[in-house]
C-alpha cells in the first residue's frame, strides 16, 4: 500500500489500469469542456458566457495534462488522442456528452447556417441543462481530485493537486448559480428541477464501475467508483435540499460510456470537435 509508483515502476496489470483511468479522466474533461465551450459568444448573460468559456478552457487544460500522462505511458500524442480517435475509443460517460438541445429541437435559422450546431443552440439551446450538469460534474470533479491528490501514482497526484486549485472557481460559480436560480422565480425553479430530473441518471454514470476499480483501489492509485458515488451523493444532497430542489431517487444510472458504448450525441460532438484537425492531421498549430 505504501508503494509509490512512477511510469517505470508500474506492473503491467497496474499500467493497464492506470491507462484506463487516465482515459476516463481525460475524455470526461475534454468532452465537458467542448460542451461548455458551445456557449462561448451566446451565453444567456455576459458573465455566464465568460464563466462557461473559462471553465471550458480549464477543462481542456486538464484533459491535456491527462493526455500527457498517457503519452508518457506510451499512448499516442495528446492532439492525436483528442482529435483522431473515434467515439468507440472514448471512455467518457454519457453525462458529459449530453446535448443541451431539447430532443424536439427542430427548425434552423437559414441566414445563420454557417455553423448549424451553433445556430440550433442560439434558437433552442437549454442553458439550464448545462448549468445543472456543471454543478453536478464539478462537485464530483472536486471530490475525485481531492482523493487523487493522495494517489500512489505520483504524476497523477501532482496534477490532481494542481487541478483542485483551479476547480475552486468552478465550484463557487456553480454553487452560487444553483442557489440563485433554484430560489429565483417560479420559472427558474421549475427549469432547474426539470434539468436535474433529466440529467441525474446520466450524472450517476460518472461513477460507472470498471473492471479495474479493485486493482486501482488496492494499489492506492484511485478510489473505487462506488465509494466516490456515495461520497458525492452525501455531498450534494444537502446542497440540493438547501436550494429547495427534489433530488431524484430510485434512478437507474446510465452506464456504458466507460466501456466505449456511446450514443449519437458523442458521435455528433466529435464530428464537430475533430473536423478541422482531421482535415490536416500533420499540420502544425
Amino acid at each position: 500500500m505504501s508503494d509509490k509508483y512512477t511510469p517505470d515502476t508500474l506492473t503491467p496489470e497496474l499500467k493497464a489500469a492506470v491507462i484506463d483511468l487516465l482515459y476516463r479522466l481525460a475524455d470526461d474533461s475534454i468532452v465537458i469542456g467542448h460542451r461548455n465551450s458551445e456557449w462561448t459568444g451566446i451565453g444567456p448573460i455576459l458573465e455566464e458566457d465568460i464563466a462557461f468559456s473559462s471553465t471550458a478552457q480549464d477543462k481542456m487544460g486538464h484533459a491535456l495534462a491527462f493526455y500527457n500522462l498517457l503519452h508518457e505511458l506510451g499512448e499516442p500524442k495528446p492532439d492525436d488522442l483528442a482529435f483522431l480517435r473515434d467515439a468507440k475509443d472514448f471512455r467518457c460517460c454519457s453525462f458529459v456528452a449530453m446535448s443541451h438541445l431539447p430532443a424536439n429541437a427542430e427548425g434552423d435559422v437559414p441566414e445563420l447556417m454557417n455553423n448549424p450546431t451553433r445556430n440550433r443552440l442560439i434558437v433552442h439551446g437549454d442553458w439550464s441543462i448545462s448549468l445543472m450538469r456543471q454543478f453536478l460534474f464539478v462537485e464530483a470533479d472536486v471530490l475525485r481530485m481531492h482523493a487523487l491528490e493522495s494517489s500512489t501514482y505520483q504524476p497523477l497526484a501532482a496534477i490532481a493537486r494542481k487541478i483542485r486549485g483551479e476547480l475552486k472557481y468552478h465550484l463557487m460559480h456553480a454553487e452560487s448559480m444553483l442557489r440563485h436560480l433554484a430560489t429565483g422565480t417560479d420559472e427558474s425553479r421549475k427549469r432547474m428541477q426539470q434539468a436535474l430530473n433529466s440529467v441525474y441518471p446520466h450524472a450517476l454514470g460518472l461513477f460507472e464501475p470498471t473492471q479495474h476499480d479493485k486493482t486501482l483501489a488496492n494499489a492506492g492509485i484511485a478510489p473505487g467508483e462506488t465509494h466516490l458515488r456515495d461520497e458525492w451523493i452525501e455531498h450534494i444532497t444537502p446542497l440540493l435540499a438547501g436550494a429547495g430542489l427534489r433530488q431524484p431517487t430510485d434512478v437507474e444510472p446510465v452506464f456504458g460510456g466507460r466501456k466505449g458504448r456511446h450514443g449519437d450525441e458523442l458521435v455528433a460532438l466529435l464530428a464537430d470537435m475533430q473536423k478541422i484537425y482531421r482535415m490536416e492531421p500533420t499540420g502544425t498549430w
Partner: peptide, 9 residues
C-alpha cells in the same frame, strides 16, 4: 466583485 472569471483564465 463582478465576475470570478475574466478575459483570461
Amino acid at each position: 466583485l463582478e465576475s470570478i472569471f475574466g478575459p483570461t483564465l
